[in-house]
Design a protein around this nucleic acid. Structure first.
Length: 515
RNA sequence: GCGAAAGUAGCUCAGUGAUAGAGCGUCACCUUGCCAAGGUGAGGGUCGCGGGUUUGAAUCCCGUCUUUCGCUCCA
């Protein structure tokens, strides 16, 4: 494990050194859990997104793409449940270092302390009075019990007040006053109560209902749900059909770590698939398998992926599974496949008071469709590709090289064209070759340093092919082409380059594997 | 957020109170010409930032930011 973490460390420094990922605002000491993609990284990321988009939108006539806004009407997040679910007052115990929801602590106190005491009194009295005991009468007359009830009432009123007013100091004071100990350590050494809202908020000019606070979306899915009927009607989509989207989402994570694995600003690739009620299980299984095929088609080694079925479900889900990937720091979630039922659409019906029904001509009835969601983090996929591609090799002559063995269709540059020397017109010839290839492939030109050094530099950014222009090229229009992983070279005619490289780097060959 | 550790050149790191360093990388020129580390030269750091102690601070102290690890959280 230690060595695996070393690998991860090497991957992150390599990512910086070769322009894949930089920390955001680095010259100002950086911004926690926010990263920028550099020249090579953004190219790799774009290729990943293209592969996903093609596999979804291009390959399926019943899946279409949209691009919805980051800002959405705040009611969206009420309806989706995010305002409630993403908003917790939290408190830490300094001794046990455990974190609790402050409201839960207080509620447990009421339950375990006060209500338990009432129960005790009731039981004692029942024993005393025997047959003639009237519990209701006892509870409404016994002064000690009434005292407890009053206390419960007081605590509940205070709890409600601090929650409504978001009075975090009052919340802390409440916990201090009640002398609530930590369930683990028994200590009363608490931090302040802090409101953790996982959604970022900002202000907008004005809204129809007078509010001005809006959120940066914490998931892209809602942009699809609110547009589902627009797309269905204007695209004349028939169920089952899907809507795909790639876009940024934002979560104010309490702890955001592990490089680009968990960021506060991140990019999702989501597809919501709308199905007839009752058929959701079938499609859930279908998309689980289909998405796994997409991952495996990339060509990572067997055993890199596995399913992890959720036992504890989110507020919207009927069934959920993660596709986990073997990152350098262990198997972690890369993609989620969720059967969301009709939760989102019925919620939006309720909050918007608009019908979000689909009329099914085959059944001759209208209904709210069920939804199967596939949701993958672009940045996690990026990290999966980068960390898997990262290879340190010992060569036969004893030297070492670092090579990024990207699947060639994902590589930032497809081909480097290198004149063997800077003299004798070789650079001009090399540039002429680039001018024929640049319409199809991302090309890299370099003439500095010895050829071997240049090969290594291309290995370090994962360029699958190096074309070397030498003196023979000037005579017979042939070049050598070197393959990144094998380091084998072959002499070929310049005219054949386009097809030779195209056959290897075209995403088409991967997409065909998906069918 | 709590606890621990760390932050010195693009990268990896040395330097524990007294002139800011090395290797690799970068740039220029020369040499070589198909698998990195030949020669010469150059550039690059107010030692994360801000205070404090001291005649003197990269070094000691405090704060702060960032990163890593553990806990915690995770749709």
């Amino acid at each position: 494990m230690a060595t695996q973490e070393d690998v991860f460390k090497k991957v992150t420094s390599h990512a910086k050194e070769y322009g894949f990922v930089f920390q955001s605002s680095e010259i100002y000491d950086g911004l926690s859990a926010v990263y920028d993609y550099g020249q090579t990284g953004s190219a790799l990321k774009k290729n990943i997104k293209d592969y996903w988009w093609d596999a979804m939108v291009k390959m399926n006539e019943n899946i279409v793409g949209i691009d919805s806004s980051i800002f959405m009407h705040p009611k969206t997040w009420k309806a989706s449940g995010h305002v409630d679910a993403f908003n917790d007052p939290l408190i830490d115990n300094k001794d046990s270092k455990k974190r609790y929801r402050a409201d839960v602590l207080v509620e447990e106190y009421i339950q375990n302390k006060l209500e338990a005491k009432i129960d005790k009194e009731v039981k004692k009295a029942a024993k005393r009075f025997g047959e003639s005991f009237n519990e209701t009468e006892f509870k409404t007359t016994n002064p000690r019990v009434l005292g407890y009830f009053e206390k419960i009432n007081n605590v509940e009123t205070r709890l409600k007040k601090v929650q409504e007013e978001e009075d975090m100091e009052g919340f802390k004071q409440l916990i201090v006053d009640l002398e609530i100990p930590c369930p683990v350590s028994g200590s009363k050494n608490w931090t302040d109560v802090r409101q953790f809202n996982l959604m970022f908020s900002t202000e907008i000019g004005s809204l129809s209902d007078g509010s001005t606070k809006i959120y940066l979306r914490p998931e892209t899915a809602q942009g699809i749900f609110v547009n589902y009927l627009n797309v269905q009607k204007t695209g004349r989509m028939k169920i089952p059909f899907g809507i795909a989207q790639i876009g940024k989402a934002f979560r104010n994570e309490i702890v955001a770590r592990q490089f680009v694995f968990r960021m506060r600003e991140f990019e999702q690739m989501e597809m919501q698939f709308f199905v007839r009620p009752g058929e959701e299980n079938k499609w859930y299984e279908y998309w689980k398998e289909t998405r796994m095929r997409w991952h495996k088609a990339i060509g990572f080694s067997e055993g890199s992926h596995k399913f992890h079925d959720h036992l504890k479900l989110a507020h919207y889900a009927k069934a959920a599974a993660d596709i986990e990937f073997k990152f350098p720091f262990g198997f972690k979630e890369l993609e989620g496949v969720h059967s969301r039922g009709n939760f989102d659409l019925t919620q939006h019906e309720e909050f918007s008071k608009k019908k979000l029904r689909y009329f099914d001509p085959e059944l001759n009835e209208s209904y709210v469709p069920n939804v199967v969601e596939t949701s993958i983090g672009v940045d996690r996929m990026f990290l999966a590709v980068l960390s898997t591609a990262f290879t340190e090799e010992k060569l036969e002559d004893g030297s070492e090289r670092i090579v990024l063995k990207f699947p060639s269709f994902l590589a930032p540059y497809k081909v480097a064209v290198l004149p063997l020397t800077k003299k004798d017109g070789l650079p001009d010839k090399a540039r002429a070759i680039i001018n024929t290839l640049k319409y199809d492939f991302e090309c890299y030109y370099e003439e500095k340093d010895q050829i071997g050094k240049r090969y290594r530099r291309q290995d370090a950014i994962g360029t699958p092919f190096c074309i070397t222009v030498d003196h023979q090229t000037l005579k017979d229009n042939t070049v050598t082409i070197r393959e990144r992983d094998t380091m084998k070279q072959e002499r070929v005619a310049i005219d054949h380059l386009e097809k030779l490289i195209g056959d290897s780097v075209n995403v088409k060959h991967i997409l065909k594997k998906l069918n």
